[in-house]
Design a protein around this nucleic acid. Structure first.
Lengths: 163, 163
DNA sequence: ATGGATGCAAACCATTTGCAGTGTA
DNA sequence: TACACTGCAAATGGTTTGCATCCAT
């Protein structure tokens, strides 16, 4: 595992990627899921990318090496990988869009299971200090903290999907 | 404007809501958009809710007072409200799902225009202190910081939608 | 060999759009 | 009155699913 400093430049070295691929094979074997050529290449594609591709992009990338791959397999594999917690989904991507009429700066507690979202306030979190490297990427206009966890209902096992 | 402390309990008082409705009417009038009965009720429904409803829920709520309202009008109005920056969309809700093969705790810089997302690291942000009130809502498993702004391409006006 | 994985095509479902009628400014 | 807004219904587009075939174990 690398330290924060070493990872800063977003460059992924071969060792790191090979380690990820090993944990992928282990993870799949452990739950008795077959390690197919397609799945391996889909995961490799993702492990190699430091940006955050959507299924279509993963599909196009993998197709260069596995021309017969189908988009559905990409979708299915990505979903399995999320279920196995080998990758994550970017942002709180719930089924439907949800809106926030609260314009003043605030932060969110989000339940990772049902999506329940509640506001909280802490002015010190509205403008957190961001590493200098990020300033090369663009202009930061503010920061938002997301506290992730499980809501009381879901802790009790009563929560439904995407509430 | 209330202080953080006063807002903590998520209860919205009448004054706050009326202030929001005034800014809604002003905002619409300012850009020469008509203030219709439907639009006012849609905004009122949202301003009254401290959770974060999806279009369907807003629709069902408004329908109790405006039985002839259509779901499309709700969608259209919500979009106008976002464009006028009178409300916001919850989470980075992009067109397609996007994945992250990086399992180690990290944070994101997100361009609010094109959706470009890059990782950054700061171990102090992995477990930020969360107000005690939140602990009543559920179990916090960690924190994630999102630095929001404009990427270099979009600052130059070269960015496309949802890249 | 055999049951899960794949590829294809059709289904799904949240969201968007075209159009004719309606109401605000 | 004029033109934007609304409601309806049909289109869109990302994602999911049913099914016959294929391949990792």
């Amino acid at each position: 595992m690398k330290t924060s400093k070493e990872r800063h430049d977003n460059k992924l070295d071969r060792d790191e990627i090979e380690a990820r691929i090993r944990s992928f094979v282990d993870g799949f074997r452990r739950v008795g899921v077959k390690v197919t050529h397609q799945r391996l290449e889909i995961f490799r594609e993702l492990a190699n990318s430091s940006d955050h591709p959507d299924p279509e992009r993963v599909f196009r990338g993998v197709r260069r090496r596995v021309p017969t791959i189908s988009l559905d397999t990409v979708y299915r594999t990505l979903r399995s990988l999320v279920d196995l917690e080998l990758i994550t989904v970017l942002g709180s991507h719930l089924r439907r869009v949800r809106f926030d009429a609260n314009i003043s700066p605030h932060h969110h507690f989000v339940c990772r299971k049902c999506g329940m979202t509640r506001d909280f306030y802490n002015e010190r979190y509205d403008w957190l200090k961001i590493p200098a490297v990020v300033e090369a990427l663009g202009t930061v206009e503010g920061t938002h903290v997301e506290a992730r966890g499980l809501c009381a209902r879901c802790v009790k096992g009563k929560g439904r999907q995407s509430a």
